[in-house]
Amino acid sequence: MQNNPSIAETARRSDIRNRWLLAAPALTTIILAAIGPLLVVLMFSFMVRGDYGDVKYWQFSTNGWLSVLFERDPIDDSLGLSSANFTIFLRSIKLSLITTVITVLLGFPTAYFVATRPEKSRHIWLLLITIPFWTNLLIRTFGIQDVIRNEGLINNVLLKFGLISQPIQMLFTDGAVLLGLTYVYFPLMVLPIYSSLEKLDFRLVEAGYDLYATRAKVLWNIILPLSKPGIIAGSILVFIPCIGAYVTPRVLGGGKNMMLGNLIEQQFGQARDWPFGAALSITLLVIVTLALLIYVRSAARESGSHGH
């Protein structure tokens, strides 16, 4: 009887050891693939920039982080707020938010349409929605460019029918970037909404009609709240890649309508300011994390107090 505690203790220890052993592959992957590289980026953001790219190792500097918000006056070397960077931040957030809203507005009816088809044809519809995804992003983006450029399809047709006398400038505007982002990320919104609508018990819709709810009220009070997990998942899947988007703003926005992704790329490319690029990357990460936290919190709170 006296030995029992120590036996139990030994068993407990070996149990813990076994658990760590079993978790080791997962932990190794997480450390090597996620946390490690992130720490390297964080380190780089606090170093001195190298003359031809790269960084001067182990020389501490906060210049990278200062550049996120401020810029040095080329003449007197004084610090001033960087309005150019601000514009890019705001544009990135604005375009990503608008894209998310548009994809929800277009994606929900699409997902509802697919979810209410007979089971056999649903797969065909889903396939049709995902097929563009199989094509290379660059090719799709250049495709859009070809449609909306000044000598492109839309302008040519409008000119031919005499509806306009001069081409409309569509390419290299925020609108073009918005169009590109919406087109590219639309399936990422449709699929999660579809998967929550597919699980929806349509007898609940009948129950709603039975209890005097019109079509609009059934949509608002029953279908939307129950498909909220899908809408939240879709919004996250669209917002995150949008805010870091690189190809779309580059091809459709041109040099003037840069987004965060382009600014970061510039630092690692032409500008050769790796610490600044690293600091920007971390800033982007923080923005995304904060946005997610706020969004998920508010969504959870709303569903908690739903109803009267």
């Binding site: 007898r203 129950l226 739903h306 009267h308």
Partner: peptide
């Protein structure tokens, strides 16, 4: 299968018809 609204409480379910009216 009762078809109760899973996102609502017991009271909200019972009051749903009246609310819609």
């Amino acid at each position: 299968n009762y078809a109760l609204f899973p996102h609502m409480t017991v009271s909200q379910n019972i009051g749903f018809g009246l609310k819609m009216l």
